[in-house]
Design a binder for these strands. Structure first.
Lengths: 257, 257
DNA sequence: GTCAATGCATTTGTCCGAGTAAATGCGCCC
DNA sequence: GGGCGCATTTACTCGGACAAATGCATTGAC
């Protein structure tokens, strides 16, 4: 836990800063909603009852609802009440919403979907980055990869260096909407490494693939960058799929077959 | 105006429903922020003064700020106040934020970025759709295209049919994160058609391209669907670029060259 | 003279209670 | 039986008060 903080809807801040009530309520309620604890279409208890049950003032509760409403998770109207919207309306690309998905074990369909998105976005972004990268982008990438080598993906520092590298590639694409996908991609990267580590699955050294992407971007070769990044993400996908199979087998067949 | 409503931060609802104060404040402030009226890093007036100036209660103003905070536009802390965050932190993919961008004439860089994103996303989504589409997806697509033919892109109905078609393709990809990009793509589609119409630029009949995409998806041909969609988006891009050039020329050289 | 601890002022955060407006469902009237 | 007005439920808005947190200046010690 203790993620990157920044926006609304996180339980507590990086600096030991105590959480604000509306933030924690939004966080808890958000997790409850995306995990299906409140079904789509269901209306939650009215403001007065619910805020009393949560032991917070109505104002704080209402601000929490505003946060969830801003992210598309609920919709509130007079008389009808506040009800959970259909999942297709949720802002899945919102960093907080995605984080709430990953707070509990997320749906495998979502993991697959995120990998598909990465396979679409990241090679294209790498190609654009090869054409447009500025010197400072390369500096950030190089530093991230060196940190990755030093700390390895088993440490928190190594994982955040991995995310920093992918973020830098999206940054270097010089495309605002693409860069906005950084947090989404980052969540996928993070989950992948953590999950594989939990399954003791770290079969392939990720560094050569990463350096190939970096070299292609630095050399200004769009197609080389595209294929190198496709290879990198594809390898991560295959490793994760294997870890997923192991994870599913374990609870069913403890030691025999 | 009078967009699709649904989430928080819209000024008024589809059904003639009067706007809620916190929604209108968030809407107005959101537009002011994305249009640069409040510079990144700048802190807005404190809650009491600002809410008085806006002629609303502090509670309503605070709920508006919570909405903006949830979308990453502002960040508020005690003593420091509420300040506008750096644009890289904004949730550009949020439907409301994007709508606020388009409320005033948006930055051409953003338009280019959106087209690049569409050129990356939509062909890939079409390919996935060709593999996974269900009969009801095809029904929706066919109906959308028939409406498009009937009303043409000059009418509101025709434009929303266009959006409905692109939405249906993303739906048919059966990929949750991809589908979440529907509102973003839709905003791009909408802006494109409206802008071209304003410049009297409608040189190419869009229907054949659209039917080719549909046929490929219906036939289950991923690569055909991919290239057909790439052709469609590429044509829209070229037309829009031409309209942009005309739009820039007009104010400078009224009638001579 | 430098640095650390501390008190203070400012701003957001939280709480409470009351009253308003809107949307739904019911009963009434036509 | 269908359309219309009314009552009820719910979120929405308001105003005021207190608490908590934080940046800053002051003060003190070394």
């Amino acid at each position: 836990m203790a993620a990157t903080d920044k926006t609304e809807g996180r339980p507590r801040r990086r600096t030991g800063n105590p959480a604000r009530i509306h933030g924690t309520i939004a966080h808890d309620l958000g997790i409850a909603i995306v995990s299906g604890q409140y079904a789509p279409g269901e209306t939650l208890p009215n403001e007065i009852d619910f805020s009393e049950r949560l032991k917070v003032s109505r104002s704080a509760y209402r601000e929490a609802v505003r946060i969830l409403s801003a992210k598309g998770l609920v919709e509130s109207r007079p008389k009808t009440g506040t009800r959970v919207t259909q999942p297709t309306r949720w802002n899945l690309l919102d960093p907080d919403v995605l984080a709430w998905y990953f707070a509990s074990e997320p749906d495998p369909k979502l993991i697959d979907g995120l990998f598909e998105l990465r396979m679409i976005i990241e090679p294209a972004a790498a190609a654009l980055a090869a054409e447009r990268r500025e010197p400072h982008h390369l500096t950030i990438m190089r530093e991230a990869l060196m940190n990755m080598e030093k700390h390895t993906l088993n440490s928190e520092a190594g994982q955040s260096a991995d995310r920093a590298f992918h973020d830098a590639v999206l940054d270097a694409s010089c495309n605002m909407p693409l860069r906005s996908l950084a947090s989404t991609i980052g969540a996928g990267v993070r989950w992948t490494t953590v999950y594989k580590a939990r399954k003791d699955e770290l079969p392939r050294d990720p560094m050569p693939d990463h350096w190939r992407v970096f070299d292609a971007i630095a050399a200004g070769g769009p197609e080389a960058a595209r294929s190198a990044m496709a290879e990198l993400v594809g390898a991560a996908l295959r490793d994760t799929a294997r870890a997923l199979r192991r994870g599913q087998k374990q609870p069913e067949t403890p030691d025999a077959g």
